[in-house]
Amino acid sequence: MRHEAQSRAPLAVLAVLAVVALVAIVCFMTVGARGSWSFVLAFRGLKLAALVLIATAIAISTVLFQTITGNRILTPSIMGFDALYALVQTVLVFLIGAGAASGVDPRLMFAGNVIVMVLFSLILYRFLFSGGTRSLHLLMLVGIVFGVFFRSISGFLQRIIDPNDFVVLQDRLFASFNTVDTSLLGIATGGMVLVGLAMIRYLHTFDVLSLGREAAITLGVDYRHVTTAILVMVAVLVSISTALVGPVTFFGLLVANLAYLVMPSGKHRHILPAAVLIAIVTLVGGQVVLERVFAFDTALSVVIEFAGGLFFILYLVKGGSR
């Protein structure tokens, strides 16, 4: 009887989260709308779709990344994944020039970028995680410094490339929550669907993986294969979110940990949707509150960085990162 009650509680939490997310979405679509409804709805709808996509990509990539690293403070962006995306983008423009780059269909460009990103992140993070028993603090620090390293090289290349090319690149890289790049929505949705299909195939292994590498192997999971698959999914998801909105360091950390906090269950079929819903609430709701209520524009990412950074420090101080 007891565990029936237990399986009901997570669903109740999910239902509440879904309602809150829905309210946030409705507010986003309607608050402060002026002029023709059809225009407002179409315009905001596109932006909403982008935000929901971003929220989903970041929430899922963070939770999965934390599952394979067995840790709740590592996130793809703390480990430098999104800086890597910017670097790949910069190198592409550097190598073929902006003229050629802007001649290429942006969707093709995105696809190529994702492939390079997947390959490179596999090599890099295989190397980092192959030790198995490496110190967590070392990993985090190496990840952060890798991020700085990637950003510095990007900065360097951006200085070298032709100033005209630079303008093109800047357009691409400096998206933010209120200047979401909607031209890539289609292919991003496609990528998301592919990742979703892959996730269904691997869903049953996620919970086993959260027991740790050794327990997972003992239980017959092909650990190398599955973690590689997850790393690929994470790389695709990070590419999607970074392409649409640019780098956001702490958002994933915040939503994943909020999900662990409110969910009375550690199972992925509860945690993953909870994280996605919380991400939607934070992103869409936060955008409404900041943009329409306080009339701040891009500040949302800054507020998230601030809150996330504080959370990170508190988490370390409280000794949560064992």
Binding site: H3, Q6, Q66, T67, D207, S210, L211, A215, M263
Partner: peptide, 10 residues
């Protein structure tokens, strides 16, 4: 054996 996920004994 250290598990980060919140799991019940069952």
């Amino acid at each position: 054996n250290h598990v980060t996920a919140r799991l019940t004994v069952r």
